[in-house]
């Protein structure tokens, strides 16, 4: 007789699987990678390759398995994209090793890490090699360095770059952060493919917008807000870092609270912090709260009153 298999129900599964998600994230990053290459040339490609290869090798070393499962490629790529074009090649390599070995595997492996591996690695690099990470070459590699708009805003003053330049990304900054247009294209794709939900990015950006609009000091509020929204790693962070599955909440309200927390911290760190940018530390500070936010903002279970009691009959 033929061999029939049995297993617990359900017997069918959606075609939406982990590798599909990884592929979608990589596809969504194509515009960002292209803009990085256009703006920063061959150097961007070199850094991206260094980051990815470093992560793949470290992952194989940690798991003892050769091969690529996708998540470490995304880690390496995002890490490289959040570095300035002028860093030496070994910076993304060191960052890749740190993110995969220390942040991911020493904290329990895939799905168990508390902190976003990319941002934790970036924080580590910023701590150890601050000089390399705070010089930003402008468009092209002519050896000129440019202050990012955020440097000016720390003074505080409106930066010299136009909002159009910031939208397209032809300003000083990290290789994947500067082109708002490219990131928005990627975000639209991720939302359409339902890889990410709108809650976190919207709450995050909305909070930054409201706070900068309210506390604009002596600058024109709307312009001040726009510069804040378009500059630095805010958008890349809101779309790709704060939405990292492992280190963010799953409940809708938890996600909104998480986004608001990230926004508040970003504005505080940008205004009063040592560095002009605050996205990295803001999201890292919120990461450990992901689980607690899910608990606090757990949705009401069907047939229960809020708070957990069973619903009684109503007259």
């Amino acid at each position: 007789m033929r061999q029939l298999t049995t297993s617990s129900s359900p017997h069918i599964r959606s075609r939406w699987i982990a590798s599909t998600i990884m592929r979608d994230v990589l596809i969504s990053l194509i515009p960002v990678v292209i803009s990085a290459c256009v703006i920063h040339g061959i150097r961007a490609i070199l850094l991206i390759m260094a980051g990815i290869v470093s992560c793949i090798i470290t992952e194989s070393f940690c798991t003892g398995k050769a091969g690529i499962n996708g998540s470490e490629v995304i880690t390496g790529l995002l890490l490289a994209l959040s570095l300035p074009a002028s860093v030496p090649w070994w910076i993304p390599v060191a960052g890749g090793v740190f993110s995969i070995l220390v942040v991911k595997h020493l904290c329990g492996g895939l799905g168990k890490n508390v902190f976003n591996p990319v941002l934790a690695a970036r924080a580590f690099l910023l701590l150890v090699w601050p000089v390399h990470l705070t010089i930003y070459p402008a468009m092209g590699m002519d050896g000129m360095t440019a202050a990012t708009p955020l440097h000016a805003m720390q003074i505080p003053a409106l930066p010299e770059s136009s909002l159009t330049d910031m939208f397209l990304g032809t300003i000083g900054g990290c290789i994947g952060e500067t082109s708002v247009l490219a990131i928005l294209l990627g975000a639209a794709y991720l939302l359409k493919r339902r890889v990410i939900r709108l809650h976190i990015p919207l709450a995050y950006l909305g909070t930054v917008a409201v706070l900068t609009l309210t506390f604009s000091g002596e600058e024109p509020p709307v312009q001040w807000m726009m510069y804040h929204l378009l500059s630095g790693s805010l958008l890349l962070g809101a779309v790709y870092m704060a939405t990292d599955y492992v280190t963010s909440p799953v409940t809708p309200k938890g996600r909104i609270a998480f986004g608001i927390g990230c926004g508040v911290l970003t504005v505080i760190l940008r205004s009063y912090g040592l560095y002009p940018e605050g996205v990295t530390y803001a999201i890292l500070c919120m990461n450990p709260f992901a689980w607690a936010l899910d608990r606090v903002f757990a949705p009401r279970v069907f047939g229960h009153e809020k708070g957990g009691r069973s619903r009684e009959k109503r007259g």
């Binding site: 017997h11 998540s71 909440p249 409940t251 949705p299």
Partner: peptide
Amino acid sequence: LERNEGTICIHCGRCA
């Protein structure tokens, strides 16, 4: 039919 039995939750929240 459903395929492999996975073990690692990536916390994507789709189940919720």
